[in-house]
Design a protein around this nucleic acid. Structure first.
Lengths: 339, 339
DNA sequence: ATGAAAGCGCTAACAT
DNA sequence: ATGTTAGCGCTTTCAT
């Protein structure tokens, strides 16, 4: 059986194609009786509206686009994808993924083209694209609906979903302080990821709150990678006196710290406490298991998708949301050795 | 500037829309001079063909679909995605991802519908979908072009790309034997992933080749997860005498083994050698770093995409390919303690 | 080598 | 409540 078209359905049901269209699109003004006839014909012919035709005529494609930077953090991207799909697929939307180099000078053009060419209905932006002012301006200008995940700039210009990085980081640092740590080092995240910078701010605030000076020599600039974590750890562990705790802005870097500590025979958490951020799969596979912060990545993606779909349906008065991260205390942190 | 259409270009270039179409689609029979005029107009107007229209009229969408099972191994999925995108995007194709439950009874219908509705030009299947006979039959029946990654059944019915799991596993086992190990345990992968079963076969073959009996009590059935690795490890490490090496069919399970060994104070590699498979990011973040096998995942994805695109262009005489995996020897394996 | 005309399957205005 | 008529922007015949 060849693919059925709207005409086939209309003929079988003995109505016009417009009526079929009404039924399929759940529009009002169709008698229940007529609707049933049409639905029966649809079922009989296994009719599925052709999306290209729909897109061409109606200017929508039922495809969403997910934009993210490369190289991205794998687990994060996958979590986002799953979150988005779990919401959009039940509502008939599919997902096209578009990882992109956030420093590519043609990025803006590329994204606008993609959206127009494929007739993508709306976009979801994740860091660091959530903070790309050029992209945001272009999308607004082209009136392409979009929602941002964890933006830090121009929050008012679009719907977004965020989490409380600052607070979680503050809390983690306070907890280390409560364990008696004072020489708490921090490894910053990649400078291009503004969202990650909130973590540093939370750390600093907690120290200040507890009257502990923020020592420059205990802060290193990482790049979110395992290797950069290793490098920063070597520098930090060479300081005299050594820090008794190292808080890394993500788990990969924390894993690097742990490796260096192992290599240098520094006991964790006996001699050194290590904390990460993200609760990636590696966090509980490490030995000892890593104390970290769990972000509600999937939930953020779900919420963002929900907002986007509502926006597409013309709902108004939608409001951006914030979802809480939570501390996951495992075995890599403990009382300060000198406490 | 509103979106330019083919008519705008035709008008500006002073030709018919058909000529524009010819130029854009690189068809023959256009005078270089005419072509240049058209290209100039295209550039001036920043014309991009509307894919929906193209799809509707020409029956292709320049969108490929990637099918994979959920829950999938994150790193694997991301690698596949990157590989596919790196090949298809430069050629003007985008990618729609469609993770699916490979045991869902509506799976076949879902996939065929997806393909038809979105007008997807071709599909790439990864394990365990590569081995789903129903899906394969339906795709063949519907004449939907597709390529499979690492299939084990009905290889002859479609193009595919695979790697030498058996050989790599054989080699790894031989290496352990060469280090003096005889009591080498094996943790099998998830039974639904046939591809993983080759790893077990390679292990058995290596033992036999070296006249070491395959002991049933040294083989456990895992589920590809970290937790299942832990469980299997507890069982294996309780045997008397204990195995001196454990070879897990993937890294996550190997990480589980290492955790249990740490907990029980068993030195790695002094008292126990551990080997994994996949070379996931965690492999070099563990302590000690994990000996494993690196699969050419991205390259397989690239090759598969290349084959699919060639197939779409009607090229014939395409042949499936095999790409080699390689042993990555790190610090979790060493001489047998009793050697 | 180039063009004119007829759809692809659907939605949107505008009837009725 | 239902139907009619134009297109959406492109690719295909088939002419020229």
């Amino acid at each position: 059986m060849a693919k059925a078209t709207i005409d086939d359905v209309a003929e079988l049901a003995g109505v016009s194609i417009k009526t079929v269209s009404r039924v399929v699109n759940k529009e009002p003004n169709v008698r229940p009786q007529t609707r049933d006839k049409v639905l029966a014909a649809v079922a009989k012919l296994d009719y599925r509206p052709n999306l290209s035709a729909r897109s061409l005529a109606g200017n929508r494609s039922y495809v969403l686009g997910l934009l993210y930077g490369i190289p991205g953090a794998n687990y994060y991207v996958i979590d986002i994808q799953e979150g988005v799909l779990s919401i959009c697929r039940p509502q008939g939307y599919d997902l096209l993924i578009h990882p992109c180099n956030h420093r590519d000078e043609n990025l803006v053009k590329e994204i606008v083209n993609l959206t127009h060419q494929k007739g993508i209905d709306g976009l979801i932006l994740t860091p660091p694209l959530s903070d790309n002012a050029d992209v945001i301006a272009a999308l607004l200008n082209s009136k392409i609906p979009f929602v941002r995940v964890a933006p830090t700039i121009n929050k008012e210009v679009s719907l977004f979903v965020e989490t409380n990085d600052w607070e979680a980081s503050y809390e983690m640092t306070c907890q280390l302080i409560a364990m008696g740590h004072e020489r708490i080092a921090f490894i910053c995240g990649h400078p291009d990821h503004l969202a990650v910078s909130h973590r540093f701010e939370g750390y600093k605030a907690a120290l200040k709150k507890n009257n502990i000076p923020v020592r420059k020599e205990l802060v290193e600039q990482g790049l979110n990678s395992f290797v950069s974590g290793e490098q920063c750890a070597r520098k930090l562990l060479a300081k005299e006196p050594r820090p008794t705790a190292i808080f890394a802005a993500n788990d990969d870097m924390a894993a690097g710290v742990m490796l260096v500590a192992h290599q240098q025979g520094i006991g964790i958490p006996g001699e050194l406490s290590v904390a990460g951020y993200d609760d990636t799969p590696v966090a509980h596979q490490l030995w000892p298991s890593l104390t970290t912060v769990r972000q509600p990545v999937q939930q953020m993606a779900k919420k963002a998708t929900d907002l986007l779909l509502k926006q597409l349906r013309g709902k108004d008065e939608l409001s951006s949301g914030i979802l809480s991260s939570s501390l996951i205390v495992r075995n890599s942190t403990g009382p300060a050795p000198d406490a």
